[in-house]
Design a protein around this nucleic acid. Structure first.
Lengths: 201, 201, 201, 201
DNA sequence: AATGAATGAGTATTCATTCAT
DNA sequence: GATGAATGAATACTCATTCAT
């Protein structure tokens, strides 16, 4: 008989799987589908490459799984902005700051960016990515920005353009693959958000 | 064939070389060292892959050459800001705008960014890249930003942080590998520059 | 300029391709999709494994191509029976004999058999094979066997069963992967064909 | 647990071993040494792959064991023909028929056939297989066929050739790995045996 | 000079086998 | 004794690079 109960085994396996996903997130986020090697992911997860295949059928399936998760997480992350306390500006600042300060919270955005850029994507991923796009984020932020404008916290003017600008800049910064260099640090959220608050902030 | 003078031959060769460099710039900028294939560069330059080796010893040497050039060009590009007419803000805006609007002017920045993340870089390149970093840009922009602050065009406060913030955000945007999507467009320079002009602009 | 005219190149390439196909036919026929190694095929064709990929996208595509060809050739081979001289029995004997005597003429049948047996077939091959089956051969031989019975050359009785029996036995023998052993030789066609001619032959 | 006597333990182990052999017989017969996976055999036998190694040192040893057994069984099977009732023809028919009708009785022949074509066979097995060949069957059948000819049940002529033809055709049919297709069925023994009975049957 | 052909080193993947639990 | 986990060797495939023509 197996020394561990079935439940224990399943749980252990689930933990393993999560370790792999986390490791893969990091490696894929930084290197993309191509330059990420299965051995790198395995090493990062603390096991051998062969083991990865007990959890995922292929590198592509692993990547695909991560993309799905990245989309969910990025959406959830942005949606969670409404649960933060304070005014729209305070919410946006806190959200932005938290992403800028914690690399792992940027992985989902980095991964999606990698998927957009690469050409040799699994067909499935191509499909998902296509439908996805930045529109989703846009919709989510719309109410927040409206409120922000109404409260005069945000600069007046074309609302769509404002959100788009924020999103592009946020994306560019969140996915910026910085060299490990003391001089490279994401800007403070307050500074970045002048884009939104404009002359009044 | 009509015999060409030696000079003509050299010139012809030089033109060829430039074609290759231009093609390689584009391909490397978009795909990075790894994902760029020699055949892609050759095709873009309108010749066979074998020919590339008459001009460059290896893919790495080619990349290396481009990096050197990219550094020069990016420096020159930023330095040229002082030749632009108008106030510091107007200069900065014009410069920023021109880069945001013309993809090929972003290649040098993209390439340097690619070099940061690539792995099997010739040791030499690694060194250069390391020393280079963003500091150079910083030095160049220092006088402009000082003047901008003095004239109250730029926001007050920590000058270093301001320049760094501008540079990071500029870099992130200039090297952002955008999906071909109607909703993805770099922001207008005016909007982006609110970061610099702050509450007063 | 290339030293060979384009036409010459194309022709040369075509010859190469045929060499590969021939080599692959042999190796796949004997070993099946799995046990056939690309290096074996390459060696048999007199080139390196890498070269195979300039002609075929993958092992599977190569196999697929061969299956298509095998089906055509096996059909054509059987249809050609009507062009042989003599009575139905003489035709059938000559055909059977020629297949039994020349290994390479059995490759198409062996290949199709391999495709039937294997499980890990490219999806496309599965489809083709499914529709194919032995029915095709059956239809082709029907007139010959009818005539053979009418002429009293062939044994009387259930015509369908007679053809099926011939086909199964023919297939089994044609695809029999014999050890290289002096004692293993396909039977003489006359002997085998007693199945068809029965008590009267 | 109730303590089992040593004898009981040995017996239990023996049963296990037989289960494995039976399972391996089936899997190897259909898929051959290479395409048969240890996990498949384990699953068919209802245990884990690791367990197989408590009974057999390696896949090759397992295969080797089966080959030995297959040889014995095939010999025994053919020898048993003399215990069947009736004339030589009746004996041969009954034997042939029983093999054609019961797949598992064909496993030994299939396995030997697989061994012929497999490559990385333990050297030992290669030797055995080589010496074995079809000659053994030949010797066994010799008296039967002699008697058959004497009784005019079998066709006249070269006795060796007649036996060889029977054996090759029998082997080819017995080892024919048929697709699961309604149109594929081994022929009736009577039809097949016309090869032996010839014009007189 | 210029091209297509050829090679070999590197990576994804599978699976027999070993081993910790 | 028995299982799931772990490893490493083998093989398909890609692509920088070299070279014959």
């Amino acid at each position: 008989m197996a020394p561990l109960s079935e439940e224990q085994l399943i749980q252990k396996r689930e933990i393993r799987r999560e370790q792999i996903i986390e490791a893969a997130f990091k490696v894929f986020a930084h290197r993309g589908l191509n330059r990420a090697k299965m051995t790198m992911i395995a090493e990062e997860a603390g096991l051998s490459a062969g083991q990865l295949y007990r959890f995922f059928e292929s590198k592509e399936e692993l990547f695909s799984t991560l993309i799905h998760r990245a989309m969910k997480e990025s959406i959830n992350g942005i949606e969670s902005i409404y649960e933060l306390p304070g005014t729209p500006y305070e919410k946006l600042k806190m959200f932005t700051q938290s992403v800028f300060e914690d690399e792992s919270s940027r992985y989902p955005f980095m991964l999606i960016q990698q998927a957009h850029t690469a050409d040799e994507m699994p067909h499935e991923v191509k499909q998902i990515i296509k439908q996805f796009s930045m529109k989703n984020y846009f919709e989510i932020l719309l109410p927040l920005f409206k409120e922000g404008q109404k409260m005069k916290e945000f600069v007046e003017g074309d609302l769509e353009e404002l959100i788009s600008s924020y999103l592009i800049m946020f994306s560019a910064l969140a996915t910026f693959n910085m060299p490990v260099d003391e001089h490279f640090e994401l800007p403070k959220a307050e500074i970045f958000l002048r884009v939104i608050t404009g002359p009044k902030a």
